[in-house]
Nucleic acid binder design. Structure first.
Lengths: 113, 113
DNA sequence: AATAAATGCAATCTAATGGTTGCTCTTTCC
DNA sequence: GGAAAGAGCAACCATTAGATTGCATTTATT
């Protein structure tokens, strides 16, 4: 049987999608896929919001597991964390699988469950 | 070459993720994958928020292309729209692909671009 | 040692979000 | 025809989110 979606799994997945749901943050993620690791100041230059705002966004992305940082001297270098992305994909895959199963069931093609 | 992420594509994708970023809405999506088409009242019963709140959430999910509705008499029946889900998956795939390309480039395995 | 760069921290502001209640309207059922 | 069910619409409210400004702190540079 296909694994169920518990209330807990929903509560844990929502912040992940929510993190990508803001245009500024999604831009950061996209930017980091091409630029490689970058400092906060460097990331701020490309944006039209302040450095402090970028910091907040990075924090949220970090909590969601989409990016991570390491300190180098006075700089904080941020980079993409593919594991967060993978988690999101797996979640969508599960929803999709469940949906497909429901469709099949509806059509009567699958009875053995 | 891998297709680029335009500012417009980011602005259009963000609402999709944002729609799934709320626990109540994500629950609705998950619920609809298993339950099949359901009316607003029916969807509200399972939830701990009011019918009007559910209506608002469905509207947001609809705008994001994740669900759609049809009217039957006095009822509005909502069901999952797999195209929205597919769009989200494609987006994540593209990010992933771009990331992989960046990694390869960094390692010097790929120079022809 | 003095200055500049990179960042953090805190207070603050505005607008959006998620939710509610109350009322109306349409459709179904008896 | 009258009651009840299913929804829509509108006003309203509290909280959060996104952003800003100002100042302090740490590290690098000259």
């Amino acid at each position: 049987m296909v694994s169920r979606f518990t209330a807990a799994s929903i509560r844990s997945a929502a912040p992940l999608f929510s993190a990508m749901g803001d245009p500024t943050r999604l831009s950061l993620v996209v930017h980091l896929t091409t630029s490689g690791p970058e400092s906060i100041s460097s990331l701020s230059e490309g944006s039209n919001v302040s450095r402090q705002a970028i910091t907040k966004h990075l924090r949220i992305l970090g909590d969601a597991g989409l990016v991570r940082s390491s300190r180098h001297g006075r700089e904080h270098i941020w980079q993409l964390d593919p594991s967060g992305l993978a988690t999101a994909r797996r979640y969508l895959d599960r929803i999709d699988a469940q949906w497909d199963a429901a469709i099949s069931r509806l059509r009567g093609h699958v009875e053995d469950e």
